[in-house]
């Protein structure tokens, strides 16, 4: 009987396996959120008067999409905490300079990506920071101002004669410009994988090829065989 070594348990070999890294819920969340954000951006800028669309239609779709997104976010926040996935967003900034350097120059010079996805850590430092910024600053600025905006009928009476409404609208608009910038960069970044569509395909199928430790591989093989290909 061969003794199990520490090396075996920690899995230092890191052989690459194709494994589902984005669960069905995560993918559902990502793509429905993407669709809602696109709808919200389009109708939102129409409400603001930058895109020609009948006002009533734009405002109505914007409101319903916003309610749907708020529900989705509420549920996803719950999901993040119950599954512990929230830890994915904790920024580990040590590797940030290397990643910034990669996108600024390395990617152009054909250098390999300095970050390797792992099961525990699906995002690189820049991603975490960007998503954290999105989820902690832009997102809340948008949805909090949006909820206040949407519930105007509840406070219209006390706001009469004040500049409350334009202030709320201003915050909402500023956040809308920020998220637009975020989305543009985000979509562009999806093309920076092994092939331009690699990351998109991963986000659709959920599967990516990443190094697994022996322990991870053994655990998945035993308990979640469906995640391994």
């Amino acid at each position: 009987m061969t003794a199990v070594t520490t090396n075996d348990l920690l899995g230092q070999d890191g052989s690459k396996r194709t494994v589902m890294i984005y669960s069905r819920y995560e993918r559902f969340w990502h793509w429905s959120q993407a669709a809602l954000i696109l709808i919200l951006a389009f109708t939102g800028f129409a409400v603001h008067g930058l895109i020609p669309l009948p006002y009533r239609t734009a405002a109505q779709i914007h409101s319903y999409a916003a309610i749907a997104l708020i529900a989705l976010w509420a549920f996803t926040t719950f999901w993040h905490f119950t599954t512990g996935q929230w830890r994915q967003y904790l920024p580990k900034l040590a590797s940030l300079p290397a990643i910034l350097k990669f996108y600024a120059w390395g990617i152009l010079a054909g250098a390999p990506h300095p970050y390797t996805k792992t099961l525990k850590r699906k995002q690189n430092a820049l991603q975490s920071l960007a998503y954290l910024w999105f989820m902690v600053i832009i997102g809340p600025a948008l949805w909090s101002s949006g909820i206040v905006y949407l519930t105007y009928p509840l406070w219209a009476k006390i706001a009469a004669g004040t500049i409350a409404l334009p202030v709320v609208a201003f915050v909402h608009l500023a956040a809308a410009y920020l998220i637009t910038i975020f989305v543009i960069i985000h979509i562009y970044m999806t093309t920076t994988g092994k092939t331009p569509l690699h990351y998109v395909r991963t986000m659709i199928t959920g599967y990516d090829t990443i190094p697994l430790s022996k322990a991870e591989a053994a655990y998945l093989a035993e308990d979640e065989p469906g995640r391994l290909k």
């Binding site: 409400v47 008067g49 334009p166 608009l173």
Partner: peptide
Amino acid sequence: PGHTRFPWMD
């Protein structure tokens, strides 16, 4: 909304 702008913000 749709009429009023914040010119410098836009």
